[in-house]
């Protein structure tokens, strides 16, 4: 860890290019709403390496497909910030107006999709100029957005519509509305080939939407799920549960809970590392990121971060 950062970055690039999948260091971006900050965690060191000050009240975050930019929404201020991921600093901030909240990047074109919580629509932005290039209406209060790169689709968890919108990216049109549980808030549309996982905050369950047929299966038994993430290479779905103060490990095939890891501080965002060995959970109230070992199904360590960590995204 005493390596010069550039040398380390170069070394990592070599490892990535060589296709190594295990144990590689990655940058975990943690958005802190109250602290108006994005912290960058080195997952190998389990430590914050960069603290990036941003505009007031950041909430959602998405990474460009090339990993070179991160986009952060500010719902109370109507802003979108672009972070230069290589330099770990703010590249620019644009005013979108409204309440920009959920954000996703197009895996093919790099276009940025931003949901407006109070205007019930998604705006498509040019990734370089950040100028709007299209708008599509969705259900009430779009929260999370997520893309399915294979099918070229965008999913929007429309919290107050109790439904998920499916948008075709080629035509940028809403092609379906799928009813789920009450108050869908978080999504993972990429981690599994056949289903999209949706956290239903108010009904306390996870809805699995079949990508092929739009069928819905719900797994209950949770209090207030606020984050979902499939674990790469495993038949495992992670669900953070704010009111149960826990991380649930679910079997998406058997539709059952395998384990419940007790956490604290109103767990929210959850991310699995690429090797599938660890999970990172934002503990919002406690200003920490909990690291959970998925083999032992136990808390491995905790990392102190900025005030009010919510959404997170894993970069290269």
């Amino acid at each position: 860890m005493t390596l010069h950062r550039n040398a380390l970055a170069a070394l990592l690039l070599v490892i990535v290019l060589a296709g190594a999948g295990e144990g590689q260091a990655a940058a975990l971006y943690v958005v802190c709403q109250a602290g108006a900050e994005v912290d960058v965690i080195d997952t190998d060191a389990s430590a914050v390496t960069h603290r990036i000050a941003v505009a007031k009240g950041p909430a959602g975050i998405a990474l460009a497909p090339d990993g070179m930019s991160a986009y952060v929404t500010h719902p109370d201020a109507g802003l979108l910030t672009r972070i230069d991921a290589a330099r770990r600093q703010v590249a620019g901030t644009v005013r979108l107006g409204g309440q920009p909240f959920g954000v996703a990047a197009d895996p093919a074109s790099g276009a940025i999709y931003v949901g407006d919580w109070s205007a019930d629509r998604i705006t498509r932005l040019d990734p370089v100029s950040l100028e709007p290039t299209g708008v599509v209406g969705v259900g009430r209060a779009p929260a999370a957005l997520a893309t399915d790169p294979r099918a070229r689709r965008l999913y929007s968890a429309d919290r107050e519509d109790d439904a998920v919108s499916i948008i075709d990216l080629a035509t940028f049109t809403r092609i379906a509305r799928v009813a789920v549980g009450t108050a869908p808030y978080a999504l993972d549309a990429e981690g599994d080939a056949t289903v999209v996982a949706v956290a239903d905050v108010r009904s306390g369950d996870v809805a699995l939407i079949g990508k092929a047929d739009g069928s819905v299966t719900r797994i209950g038994g949770m209090r207030m799920p606020y984050g979902v993430a499939f674990v790469p290479g495993r038949r495992l779905l992670l669900v953070s549960d704010q009111q149960a103060e826990a991380l649930h490990l679910l079997d998406p095939d058997g539709k059952e809970t395998l384990a419940k890891v007790r956490l604290g501080g109103s767990p929210e965002g959850v991310v699995a590392d690429r090797s599938g060995g660890r999970a990172y959970v934002a503990e919002w109230f406690a200003n920490r990121v909990a690291v959970v070992d998925l083999e032992t199904r136990a808390l491995a360590t905790r990392i102190d971060v900025c005030d009010g960590p919510r959404m997170m995204v894993l970069g290269p």
Binding site: Q33, A34, P75, D76, F101, W117, A141, E160, A183
Partner: peptide
């Protein structure tokens, strides 16, 4: 009954 904003406080 539907009111819920995107920015929680503690």
């Amino acid at each position: 009954a539907l009111a819920h904003g995107p920015t929680p406080q503690k």
